[in-house]
Design a protein around this nucleic acid. Structure first.
Lengths: 212, 212
DNA sequence: GTCTATAGCTTGATAGAC
DNA sequence: GTCTATCAAGCTATAGAC
């Protein structure tokens, strides 16, 4: 057995409990909130005991922080790995939104927790800079729209307001995705609504109102 | 002193502590969440002691439920007392949204709590049927839009999708109103964005795509 | 109606054996 | 690394005097 195999085994053994705790904790934090998800529940559902949790993560906050860091990093990946297709502005918006929507759907528990902490009371959870992701997303959409206006694809207008229209439906779709209720806005419907909005942005301004 | 004066005095004395508790509790529930806002904090901030709270409301749940009932009734009032102006569909949408926006801004603490409970974990709070207000609002907007399409004010389209566009920006505006952060969408901006959307709904469909 | 005092439970966290 | 056993602090709620 080589040195690396030894370390790999050790890491995999160590990781077994660790991963288990992380998975269970995310699910419980998302379902019950940071404060209401107790350490006891987490360790019981993980099949370990409390001291193990404290061994790995120091305390409840440490466990929470590690979850935040890991999953926030994934958001950055999604936000940064887009827009290398040189298609129309409309397609760029639809593509970016679709990627984010899929990511939210795939990491639903984390986003449920994120929304809870961001829009609700902090519940004693340590601070996490969620607002920057809101801003990044807003800026990304706005940039595409401004480029679309410059290129003549969209009619002239207030890019900030146009961005808000896009963000609004995306926000609705995300929130529905996060709730367990029956959804009226799945991936396809969201794309259709984006089609509606972006086609309206394309239509030329009413000539009767322009003085030329 | 008449009988009525006696009762009025009794009620006003009784109401003093009662009202105080209700006001303080709403604020604390909104800021810290149902679970994290403790009975101790509420009674301390109210200037009374725990047994008084239990005397009036039975328990923490009873206090919470009374807050919900009172403020939910006010939402119904707003949703039902509109649309008696026979103006354009555009003005009807703007008017309804404005009324709701103002109501949210005026009863901010309650809506903060409502959003927290609705989108986040229940935190052990007793169930309250918030989803019906979502549905009522959705239906009200959709109805106006359908009427606008019938009357020819709006171009033909999917009323459900058009409603989602409206609801999206309203949702964004409400959520910004509820957060303490710097807002980019106040009452005026919301009305401007609605102008943008509703004007786009008005524009005639592109003839080049119709086969006539 | 309002208080003092306290019961009874759950919580996050740890000491110390293995 | 993982356990058993346990602690101190916080919580909701109540008994009983006034």
């Amino acid at each position: 057995m080589t040195m690396e195999q030894v370390m790999a085994k050790k890491r995999s053994l160590e990781s077994d409990s660790r991963r288990q705790i992380l998975d269970v904790a995310l699910k419980l934090f998302a379902r019950k909130g940071y404060a209401a998800a107790t350490v006891r529940e987490i360790v019981d559902a993980s099949g370990i005991t409390a001291p193990s949790l404290y061994y790995y993560f120091g305390n409840k906050e440490g466990l929470y922080m590690e979850l935040m860091q890991t999953h926030c990093a994934r958001i950055d990946q999604v936000l940064e790995s887009h827009m290398h297709t040189s298609s129309s502005a409309k397609e760029k918006v639809k593509d970016l939104v679709d990627k984010i929507f899929l990511h939210v759907a795939n990491d639903r528990d984390f986003f449920r927790l994120m929304f809870t902490i961001y829009y609700g009371p902090s519940q004693g959870a340590p601070y996490c800079d969620f607002i920057s992701y809101h801003a990044k997303f807003h800026a990304a959409i706005k940039k595409i729209i401004e480029e679309g206006i410059s290129s003549g694809e969209f009619q002239t207008g207030n890019p900030g307001h146009m961005t808000l229209v896009i963000r609004g439906v995306v926000q609705l779709a995300m929130e529905e995705q996060i709730k367990e209720d029956r959804k009226i806005m799945d991936r396809q419907v969201l794309q259709r609504v984006l089609d509606l909005i972006l086609e309206l942005f394309k239509q030329p301004p009413d000539d009767s109102k322009e003085g030329r």
